[in-house]
């Protein structure tokens, strides 16, 4: 018990998350049978949630710095629609579409970061407006949802990377290789990269310092405004990349794409132990946050509650529980 008390907030919250994830996964295996034991089931979770992992990493960084960004879902939708239109109607190249995704992300980061960091406007209001702007812009770019038929893109979309030694035999006795999509590789690179940045780079430590206490960060000689600015640029850039990975997964452009992704990203970060008040958080935790969230969604759907509303309610309930836990952790510190 004393050891628990001496743990830092970051480690305590991270530990809670990892324990929750494993309990849930084991629970799923016990209750819902062997389907969850197949490695491919796990890889499918990664495949569908690669985009969410990337955006959640960005969200965690903004939240560690003490801000929030709810425009990421809108940015993802805007990216997928713009790229789809560019690829199909303008006969564009895949490299060009990636550049478009990055440009949209960068532009969003610059504007929102400037408004939040240098004009000192509440991040929530700025990104709420950003979200509505992105959603509106998506329909202005193109109203109707459509599937992309560009050959080079479809080839990239269908690329499967086989994970050796993880395959399983199906009912007919045929061996099927386990695979992941390209997006998963991107997501893992992003996770590792930003884990290292946050842990070892001066920039990363600055994020924690600014989020923890703005005043003391300022006294330590940290450029608070620039740090906030950079955090928003990273978040929006990652939202752009995440949007592209999402686009790569679904292969179509639509104004209703990535609906509620901002919510899932915030929920994943919070479940992963990032504190809303800033200064506390961990990218590995965020990864586990995404995994916990998608596992519980998987459990909910395979347990027979397949109506769409259960997903919304479970995420909200989980978010609520973890918010309360955080609130209690803060209370513990104040004692």
């Amino acid at each position: 018990m004393k050891k628990l008390k001496n743990m830092t907030d970051t480690n305590l919250l991270l530990a809670i998350t990892i324990v929750v994830f494993f309990l849930m996964y084991i629970g799923a295996v016990v209750i819902l049978g062997k389907g969850f034991l197949k490695p491919q089931n796990f890889f499918n979770i990664l495949n569908t949630n690669a985009a969410l992992i990337i955006t959640s990493v960005g969200m965690s960084i903004v939240m560690i710095t003490g801000g929030i960004d709810i425009s990421v879902g809108g940015v993802a939708a805007l990216v997928s629609m713009s790229c789809a239109v560019y690829l199909d109607y303008h006969n564009g190249s895949v490299a060009g579409s990636i550049l478009i995704a990055l440009a949209i992300g960068l532009l969003y980061g610059l504007v929102q970061g400037y408004l939040v960091a240098y004009l000192d406007i509440q991040p929530f209001i700025v990104s709420l407006a950003g979200m509505f702007f992105a959603r509106g812009m998506t329909t202005i770019v193109n109203t109707k949802p459509f599937n992309v038929a560009n050959e080079a893109f479809v080839a990239l979309k269908n690329t499967r990377i086989i994970v050796p030694g993880m395959g399983s035999t199906n009912k007919k006795g045929m061996y099927i290789d386990a695979y992941v999509e390209i997006g998963v590789i991107v997501a893992l690179i992003v996770v590792v990269l930003f884990f290292l940045v946050l842990r070892y780079l001066k920039l990363g430590r600055n994020f924690y310092a600014v989020g923890g206490n703005k005043q003391s960060a300022l006294m330590l000689g940290i450029n608070v405004k620039r740090t906030k600015f950079i955090s928003h640029i990273i978040c929006s850039m990652l939202a752009g990349i995440g949007g592209y990975v999402y686009f790569l997964h679904v292969g179509s452009g639509s104004a209703s794409h990535a609906m509620g992704m901002e919510m899932n990203a915030i929920a994943s970060s919070i479940i992963g132990g990032t504190m809303l008040t800033g200064g506390v958080g961990n990218i590995i935790g965020t990864l586990f946050g995404v995994l916990s969230l998608s596992t519980i969604q998987n459990i909910v759907t395979s347990a027979g509650f397949d109506q769409a509303w259960w997903t919304g309610i479970t995420i909200a309930a989980m978010l609520c529980i973890f918010l309360v836990i955080q609130s209690l952790v803060i209370a513990r510190k104040n004692k």
Binding site: L115, I121, Q122, I125, V126, L128, A129, G130, M131, F132, F133, R135, G136, M137, T139, I140, T143, A255
Partner: peptide, 15 residues
Amino acid sequence: DALPAYKAVVVIFLV
């Protein structure tokens, strides 16, 4: 569907 984009500009201008 496009309406939010215009309103967002107004919000940003106001804030």
